[in-house]
C-alpha cells in the first residue's frame, strides 16, 4: 500500500510540474509579454523598463524557476487589473467555489448512487424507468434553464430560498442543486451498470448461498465492487464543477473562481489567469490522486499486486 501511495504521489507531482510549465508558457503566448503589458501607446523606453521590472529579460528557465518558486509559496504576482496580489483574490473566491462544488457533489452523489442501486435491483421495473427519466431529463435540460426555473418558483413565487448572493447556507441550496443535477445522470448510470454486472457475478451467488440478507448483499458485497469506477468519475466531475461553473455562478451571482476566470479573460489579466489555471489544475491532480487512493482502499487487487 505504501509503495503504491508513494508511486502515485510521485506521478502526481510530475504532472503538477508539467502543468505549471505549460501555465508559465502562457506568458509568451502573445509574443513579448512586455509589449502586451505596456499597452498600445508605450514608447520603446517604457517597454525596456517594463521588461527589466518584470524580469522578462532573463533566460526563460531562470524566469520559470523563480515564478515556480514564488507560486509554491502562494505568490502569483500582481493582478494587472486589480492592482493587488493575485493570491488574495483567488483565495477569497476559492472558498466560495469549494463550498458550492462540494455541496453540489454531495447532492449529486446522494441522489445518484441510491438511484443507481435501486434501478439495478430490478432492471426495467417502474423504479428503473423513474431513475432513467431523472437521468435523461438531467442530461437533456440546459442547466441555466433549470436554474432560472428553480429561481422563479422557490425564490420569487414561494419565497423559500434567496435567489442570489453567498451570505448564508440557504444561498447555496439552489446553485448546488443546479450544478449537482448536471452530473447526476453520469454517476447514476455508471452505478447502475456497475451494480448490474456485479449482481450477476459468482461471489454474489456465494453470498446468497451463505444466507446473507438482501441489504448486506447490496451494500456490503455488491456496492463496494461496483462503486470503483464511480469514484474516478466523481473526482473528474468535481474538478469540472470547480472550474466550469461559470454559468451557474453568473446566474446566482456567486462570486467564485469560474466567474473570476471569465472576468479575467475579459480584462486580459494574465497573472490572474495563470494563477487560476494553475490552482484548478493542481486541484484536479489532487482529486485524481485521492480517487486513486480511495480505489486502492476499496479494491485490494489495486493495492496488493
Amino acid at each position: 500500500m505504501i509503495a503504491f501511495f508513494i508511486k502515485r504521489l510521485v506521478t502526481a507531482l510530475l504532472v503538477v510540474l508539467t502543468v505549471s510549465a505549460m501555465t508559465f508558457s502562457m506568458t509568451f503566448l502573445t509574443g513579448d509579454p512586455a509589449i502586451a503589458v505596456a499597452g498600445e501607446n508605450a514608447t520603446q523606453a517604457d517597454i525596456v523598463r517594463i521588461r527589466e521590472y518584470y524580469g522578462y529579460d532573463r533566460p526563460i528557465p531562470v524566469q520559470f524557476m523563480s515564478w515556480l518558486g514564488r507560486a509554491a509559496q502562494g505568490d502569483f504576482g500582481q493582478s494587472l487589473y486589480l492592482n493587488q496580489p493575485v493570491s488574495i483574490e483567488i483565495f477569497a473566491r476559492l472558498k466560495t467555489t469549494m463550498t458550492l462544488g462540494l455541496s453540489a457533489l454531495i447532492f449529486a452523489l446522494v441522489l445518484a448512487i441510491p438511484l443507481g442501486v435501486v434501478a439495478a435491483i430490478r432492471p426495467n421495473s417502474l423504479l428503473d424507468r423513474f431513475a432513467l427519466t431523472v437521468a435523461v431529463v438531467g442530461q437533456a435540460m440546459p442547466s441555466f434553464w433549470f436554474a432560472l426555473t428553480m429561481m422563479l418558483w422557490f425564490g420569487i413565487n414561494w419565497r423559500i430560498l434567496p435567489v442570489s448572493g453567498t451570505d448564508t447556507w440557504a444561498h447555496f441550496v439552489m446553485p448546488s442543486i443546479a450544478l449537482g443535477y448536471f452530473i447526476t445522470p453520469g454517476v447514476m448510470r455508471l452505478t447502475r451498470a456497475g451494480m448490474l454486472e456485479v449482481l450477476r457475478s459468482d461471489y454474489i451467488r456465494t453470498a446468497r448461498a451463505k444466507g446473507a440478507s438482501g441489504f448486506s448483499i447490496l451494500f456490503k458485497h455488491a456496492l463496494r465492487n461496483a462503486i470503483i469506477p464511480v469514484v474516478s468519475l466523481a473526482a473528474v466531475q468535481f474538478g469540472f464543477m470547480l472550474g466550469g461553473s461559470i454559468v451557474i455562478e453568473t446566474i446566482f451571482a456567486v462570486n467564485g473562481l469560474g466567474f473570476l476566470a471569465w472576468e479575467s479573460i475579459q480584462r486580459a489579466d494574465l497573472p490572474m489567469m495563470q494563477a487560476i489555471v494553475l490552482v484548478l489544475s493542481v486541484f484536479y491532480i489532487m482529486l485524481t490522486f485521492l480517487a486513486d487512493v480511495l480505489n486502492a482502499w476499496l479494491d485490494p487487487r489495486i493495492r496488493i499486486s
Binding site: S201, D202, Y203, T206, R224, N225, D299, P300
Partner: peptide
C-alpha cells in the same frame, strides 16, 4: 447454516474486496 454449497469456479466465487 443447515445447507451449504460449493461452486465450480473458485476463481470468481469469492468477493475480491
Amino acid at each position: 447454516d443447515q445447507m451449504a454449497m460449493i461452486f465450480q469456479e473458485p476463481m470468481t466465487a469469492l468477493n475480491p474486496a
